Amino acid sequence: MALATRTARPSILRLLWQSTVGKKAVMATTGVVMLLYLVVHMLGNLKIFFGAEEFNGYAAWLRTIGAPALHQSWFLWIVRSVLAASVVLHGVAAYQLSRRDIAARPRSYAHKRRRASYATRTMRWGGVILGLFVVWHILDLTTLTVNPRAEAHHPYENLVASFSTWYGGGIYIVAMLALCLHIHHGFWSAAQTLGANSARRDRVLKAAAAALALILTIGFLSVPVAVMTGLVS
């Protein structure tokens, strides 16, 4: 008697990932993770206005979080690993959804309408810009590979050295403007995907998206602008 062959069923996670709804959920969830990190990161960056001792002390404290249960810098590496996974999943899901969208509409429309906002139309390019910036930011202020000063355990001095150059400050400013547009549209899209929106809450969510994008942009831009104008040195 021939043995019946069984076809292995894909797991629930695999089915979820393969679906359009699942990919959008992954994008929304990872977007929330990265947004929370950005808020904390911006607040930490603003400590630069309290001087080198305060800023360097804060950076040193980050390496000791979780002690003695965690060894030196373990917490930072856990955060970096979660962020790296979030960035990869977010980017892959965005790319695959984009390809599906193109495949579903192989022919261009005869009459194109620009109903989407500028942030929506530039969402993809904004993501590319931010992805490239992350690589530059790591090489500049984490590994110190391209940093003009490149002195370990002196984050304040390294940050000032980077933003004192026209390209260091310029790259950061362009990236933060792209971030503003990305957050403005991404926050709203994530709310829709996760089911947080409704007819009554739409205006509130749109206002929250605009306010959050503006606050983060001003907070992040204040640091390079302060360095480039000599307010912080």
Rank of each mutant, 00 (worst) to 15 (best):
F50P: 07
Y58A: 03
H71T: 12
G91R: 02
I48R: 06
S108D: 15
D101C: 01
R121I: 13
E54I: 05
T122I: 10
H71C: 05
M34Y: 06
A94H: 00
R113F: 04
H90K: 11
A69V: 08
R121E: 12
I65D: 01
S117V: 11
A93F: 02
M27I: 09
A110G: 15
V33M: 09
M34W: 13
A103M: 15
A110F: 11
I48M: 07
Y37D: 11
A69P: 05
S117I: 05
S108K: 08
R107E: 15
G57M: 02
T64Q: 03
M34K: 12
G57Q: 02
A28C: 07
T122Y: 14
D101Q: 01
R115M: 06
W77V: 01
T30E: 13
R107N: 14
T120H: 15
A52T: 15
R100I: 01
Y95L: 03
L46S: 03
L89H: 15
A119E: 15
T120M: 14
V88S: 05
Y95S: 05
V39R: 02
A25K: 10
A110W: 12
L43P: 03
G51N: 09
G44D: 11
Y118V: 05
I78A: 09
V33T: 11
S73F: 01
G31Y: 06
A59W: 07
S86D: 12
Y95P: 04
E53P: 09
Q96H: 05
S108F: 11
R113N: 04
G66P: 01
L89Y: 15
A116S: 13
L43M: 08
N56Y: 01
P106T: 11
V39P: 05
A116M: 15
L35P: 00
R100E: 03
T64G: 04
L97M: 00
Q96G: 02
T30K: 13
I48H: 02
I102V: 07
V33D: 12
G91T: 02
H90D: 08
A110L: 14
V79S: 07
R115E: 08
A103L: 14
M27Q: 08
S98Y: 02
L97T: 00
H41M: 09
Q72S: 07
Q96A: 00
A103W: 13
Q72A: 06
M27A: 07
Y109A: 14
L43K: 03
W61K: 01
K112L: 10
Q72D: 10
M42F: 12
G51E: 07
W74T: 04
I102R: 06
R107K: 11
V26A: 12
L97Q: 00
F49P: 03
H41V: 03
M34E: 10
G44H: 07
I48Q: 08
E53W: 07
A94C: 00
R105M: 10
N56A: 01
F49H: 03
R121M: 13
S86L: 05
S117R: 09
A25C: 12
Y109G: 14
W61D: 02
E53R: 10
F49T: 05
T120Q: 15
Y37E: 10
T120R: 09
S98H: 02
V87Y: 09
A60I: 11
H41K: 04
P106H: 09
R113A: 08
V82Y: 04
